[in-house]
Design a protein around this nucleic acid. Structure first.
Lengths: 161, 161
DNA sequence: TAGCTTTTTTACGGAATCAACAAAAATAAT
DNA sequence: ATTATTTTTGTTGATTCCGTAAAAAAGCTA
């Protein structure tokens, strides 16, 4: 898709994701419908997403760790995808350098480093080494809340179909 | 602040940040006003933010790098804050392990690794070492669009006060 | 417990926005 | 020039937003 200056401007104005389309339209001298259809298209194509994010430091007993991973495998991208599906994993970057993957993980009381490595990482083949960086302070780090603050609890969106 | 199960549920339903408060209220058997005031409070206190995020791979000539930093200093948190203010920096994590900081940066054609290190990192004292990881593929990585896709361009939110 | 304060939730109503659609305009292709 | 395709715009009713004020709940303090 063509990401032109207008789309960039729209995305910028969506830094506050609740900004009304009308207001964005006025600022950019467009009609509301144009903004809406462009945003819809951007979202449909996976380029843009509008979502609620939490500052992990604000959630008690919630912790972020970053894990540098080396794999024996050659297909790093496929390995990255596998990691991205593990419980607790927020994002995976396939990188150049000392590591092959840098994995960002969110842990809590019931799902800590022990569980992450023994129950999750252990299921993946050809992992040569892992190196763990516990994040004890962050700036401008915002993460989507995966399930519910205390994972695997039953009380949450009970209104689903 | 007290982050109870209701707030967690609200934040979960805000995974789509455009979800109407009314709809959230119905799902949780609350009134719309309750949802709105809770969301407002969460946002005011810096716990929650609702924003538009882009998949960096979708933006051509846009690149993410992660930089592991060691500093000579003792006050790592203060250093982290300094890094967080540099141009291009998306987030900073103060970590245990081989590195002191892990810095996530967004670069593009006009502002590449060269500029980041010579113009930005160079302004910070007591940096012992840096190690660069270029992200060439990512999963579930979403970043806020800092200024405009092509930084320092003039055409963007021209409607500001 | 009674009395008070503070916080949270609810109810309400007008203004604004959302969402879908069809027409118009602009763009691209033949 | 003509046709086809995409994008933008205008219009509409239903819905949502958001400020305000009252009610309810939760926390004190004595």
């Amino acid at each position: 898709m063509n990401i032109d200056a207008v789309n960039i401007a729209i995305i910028n104005l969506l830094k506050n994701g609740r900004t009304p389309y009308k207001q964005i339209a006025d600022k950019l001298s467009l009609s509301e419908g144009t903004v809406r259809s462009r945003v819809k298209k951007l979202i449909d194509e996976g380029i843009l997403s509008i979502s609620g994010l939490v500052n992990p430091q604000a959630l008690p007993d919630q912790q972020i760790v970053m894990v540098g991973v080396q794999v024996k495998d050659m297909d790093l991208v496929k390995k990255g995808e596998e990691f991205s599906k593990l419980r607790g994993v927020i994002s995976v970057c396939v990188v150049t350098g000392r590591f092959d993957l840098i994995v960002t993980v969110m842990l809590d009381n019931d799902f800590g480093l022990l569980e992450f490595f023994t129950e999750e990482v252990a299921t993946i083949d050809n992992v040569r080494s892992v190196e763990t960086f516990v994040v004890y302070k962050s700036f401008n780090l915002k993460v989507p809340l995966d399930n519910n603050g205390h994972p695997r609890s039953t009380l949450s969106c009970q209104g689903n179909p």
